[in-house]
Amino acid sequence: MTLSLRTVRTPVVSTPDRRRSAGPARTDGWWPWAFVAPLFLGVCVFYLWPILQTVYFSFTKFGVFGGQTWIGAANWARLVQDPDFYRAILNTLIYSAIVLLGIPVAVFLASLINRPGLRFASLYRVLFFLPYIAMPVAISLVWRMMFNGDFGIINYALSLVGIDGPHWLSTPGLALISVSLVGFWGSFGLAILILGAGLKNIPVELYEAAELDGATPWRRFRSVTVPLLSPSVFFVTIITIIGSFQLFDALYAMLGPNNPVMPATQSLVFYFYENGFIRNDKGFAAAIALAILVIIGIVTVIQFRLQKRWVNYD
């Protein structure tokens, strides 16, 4: 298992290639193989081989008690015609979009926390980081109680200001929003740390120069902070999107698979789970898994293309 993708990172960005400077052709003999082999063998067995196998599975139908039958591209044909597939893509995009809204907020919070001389800064960092270390299953159970339409404290808080709260988790549309809000809530911890590290790397002289030129705080933020922070923002964006595409645990634990709104709310990974595990159609599920892989790949490539427009590595 890879590390959950919320921690996965980055782009191989502008790393100077030091190998060239390592002197005239030298050979390390068999040493490199000894260094790499244990890891690489494990990766082959547990990751690369499974991917190849999944490709094969996607062209088969599984029997109840084992055995696969080759059915050609039937799973794929069914997938591209299945409205649930597109619904799941849309839901996943909506979720990602809401969670991504957390990034500007995180930039703002990080700039507050990293103000020089701010007291309790490390306490704030700890607080914002709490959701990141919480076990997703455990904390989703708590949110489920908080969102409860009849007894939850969210609707109670709304009732204090005269709003009759809905049944968040069992109303189509709202259920996805609720789960997204929890994703939003959990998205700050790591982002604030990474952005904070980026902020510290901005030379203070630049601010001083801007100040001497009479730039307003907003102007300094726009002209100094934003461009110099862009590599960190880009990195956070990538990990957030990849993490969002893996949405499953929270959806499962907060809504439950038997929830009537699930068909309208399910994410891509849930759609995979539903077909592979609940409906036991593992060949079709293999096709879905590969489709998820392709979609994440495309989205990531697009991001790397777009980064040239706004990410500043100088």
């Binding site: 390592a22 490199p32 690489f40 690369l48 499974p50 592979g276 898994a289 590969l290």
Partner: peptide, 26 residues
């Protein structure tokens, strides 16, 4: 270190970062 196939091996290792973990389960 320098060795033949380094680029390819590294690319293969990095590629699995992109794959949702569910893909491997079966």
């Amino acid at each position: 270190m320098r060795f033949r196939g380094r680029g390819l091996m590294l690319a293969l290792v990095l590629a699995i970062l992109m794959v949702p973990s569910q893909v491997y389960l079966l």
